[in-house]
């Protein structure tokens, strides 16, 4: 019995270690697309750390329409800056065009500690929606999504030493797509 106990303990301990290494995949798998949209395989969630900048290079096809949504762990308290640049297929930076420039914090959500990252909006019937951005490529192009996870302001402890909180959580870029109708 003693041997079995130690064997089971070791197995359970190893199981526990593997579970502790869980990344942010659940943060994405909980999101579902509603027809006519389907979830693009390019949707991505990643472990993100305050004070870091994450760039997502997203190729877009001309025969599709895309819907972009952003989600972040409540721990970041919406203190994230989102910027989306149309790279326009050229390597010339003068052709780049900023199409979205969104500070995560805003009066409606800054104290909510929700997963919205951006303020939700209501339709005319009062239904609340997670904010999304519809993108239509006229020609194939590439978007650069820049997610700047801001460092919280430095604080002082009881002895007067300065410290900064390092926050680790998940940020997800959800990309939905459907066949193009517009062009």
């Amino acid at each position: 019995m003693k041997k079995i106990f130690w064997l089971v303990s070791i197995i359970l301990f190893l199981t526990k270690i593997s579970y502790s290494q869980l990344s942010c995949s659940n943060f994405l798998s909980n999101r579902k697309a509603e027809p006519p949209y389907k979830m693009s395989s390019m949707s991505k969630s990643a472990v993100s750390i305050s004070g870091h900048v994450y760039k997502y290079e997203v190729p877009l096809s001309a025969d599709k329409e895309y819907r972009l949504m952003f989600f972040a762990s409540p721990a970041f308290n919406n203190n994230i800056h989102f910027k989306v640049i149309d790279k326009n297929a050229t390597s010339d930076p003068s052709d780049d065009k900023v199409i979205l420039d969104l500070p995560g914090e805003n009066p409606k959500t800054q104290n909510a500690r929700g997963t919205a990252a951006l303020a939700p909006f209501e339709d005319k019937d009062g239904h609340e929606f997670h904010p999304y951005f519809d993108i239509i490529p006229a020609h194939a192009t590439s978007l650069e999504i820049i997610i700047d996870v801001k460092q919280p302001p430095a604080q002082k402890d009881e002895y007067g030493n300065t410290y900064t909180e390092v926050i680790k959580g998940c940020v997800a870029v959800v990309i939905l797509e459907k066949p193009s109708e517009s062009f």
């Binding site: 869980l22 942010c24 870091h52 290079e57 721990a75 959580g169």
Partner: peptide, 28 residues
């Protein structure tokens, strides 16, 4: 653990420039 991981640690700030990580996404 099924909830997304979140951690808050206190550290002494060491640098002013943010680290940049790039993800190149490829459709299926």
């Amino acid at each position: 653990e099924k909830k997304p991981q979140e951690q808050i640690q206190k550290t002494i700030p060491q640098k002013d420039t943010a680290e940049v990580e790039i993800f190149y996404l490829v459709p299926s």
